[in-house]
Design a protein around this nucleic acid. Sequence first.
RNA 1: GACCCCUUCGUCUAGCGGUUAGGACACAUCCCUUUCACGGAUGCGACACGAGUUCGAUUCUCGUAGGGGUCGCCA
Length: 454
Amino acid sequence: MSATCTRAYSLLCRFFPSMTRVRFAPSPTGDLHVGGGRTALFNWLFARKTGGTFILRIEDTDGARNTEDAKRGIEKGLRWLGLDWDEGPDAGGDCGPYFQSQRKDIYDTYLAKLEAADRVYTEDNGAVRFKFSRTAITVHDLVCGDVTFAPTEEPDMTVRRPDGSYIFHFVNVVDDIEMKMTHVFRGEDHLSNTWKHIDLFNAFGATPPIYAHIPLILNSDGSKMSKRDAGSAIEHSYINEGFLPDAVFNYLVMLGWTPRADKEVLGRDELVKLFDPAEIHSSNARFDLQKCQWFNAQYLRALSPEALFAAARPFIEAKGYVIADEATATAAVYSVKEKVSLLTEIPAWVHYFFREDYPFEADVTEKLKAKPENASLLRAAAAAFTTATEWTEASVQTAIEEAAKGAGVKPGALMPLLRGALSGQLRGPGVNTIGHLVGKDSTLRRIERALGLF
RNA sequence: GACCCCUUCGUCUAGCGGUUAGGACACAUCCCUUUCACGGAUGCGACACGAGUUCGAUUCUCGUAGGGGUCGCCA
């Protein structure tokens, strides 16, 4: 960022802290793209940081492929990420309507201004073109610094189609003027076109906003990320895959900006506090699913038992498991929280808490049958459980240890057997935790059922 | 093709003329441990290349290469 820009920016923030106005202006194409989500996120961070206004404007001038469903997809993604907008659909505001499809009169008015200034001409078929100034134009960018474009040799830019509808560059600039945007955070893919926007601002006699072009998110192989790629769509890749919004928020921020902090796991409030647009990176970043999942694991583990259960519940029920007792289910889910990094992984770790006919995995059957005396060890454990007078994690533990002692083996020899019998698998929370949570009766039934394998 | 942006471990990055080039994810080994994990410790691993400027370049300048982007009556 240039010194002039830095100064202008800090002055603006110091004296007019709540005058900043930024917007996210997506074309409603369905599921929110991560790149778009992150663009929205930086706009939101800046608005919250400066006490300004975050506006959502739907650029739906291409009526053919902009459906109501598509619009809802965008809004769902934004809401899920926690990016609330102060003006826009459902929020209202003084600069509406916030759908470009409803702003034709405004565009007509602005086109008239260009006509009056002799900056447009109509072609034979009715299309209207804007006469470029064909002077050198410098973009003062918060991220990229000053970028100067030589006088263009491109043909004049079409701003209105023969059918009367308007082109992106035109409506985008008109709306940014009308909606009084002070800053524009957008993808770097727009940098090369920004001189056209500035040319338009100048033609309207308006002051361009301060631009900040943020780097793009690439696939792990460095190619451009598009719809079908892993991690590309908020609902499909994150909501449905068991990510937590805060984790995705945190990861996405880190992909374009490194906060000055001694840790990476930072909450929204901390990120807002630390955010400095001048520190946004200038190079593209590759998407790393493993790192994103690591963030998710961190946030998962920080959840309270109740919050974790609430988040996991839909994923458990989607597998068809019936939750009869919420308190037990909550404890069951909490007992495996540090074994997973995605909510979608939880059902496979807790399914046996919700049914008695859980399958015995192959290695369990193998383990149990490996030694003939395993059956008697299980019977010894059952006997110890039967005589237990109380049923807590501690008492279950004690019963197991006593059964092992009585049978002349170490608890470690009995544990895997019991684990396999009670859960059908060789991994999971402590055996005493499983026994305690499923209850005494079920514990005995489960051992009996496992005995049937011999 | 023209123009624009970018270039530190595999990935995300710190660094802002002198550092044993630091951290995180991933990976490997060890410790902990009834399993799976968590956690802890250690290790592996980078300044794209070539010229300058300088006593000294990862850091500044130029070039080359590579990656990305833009050049629509898409947004």
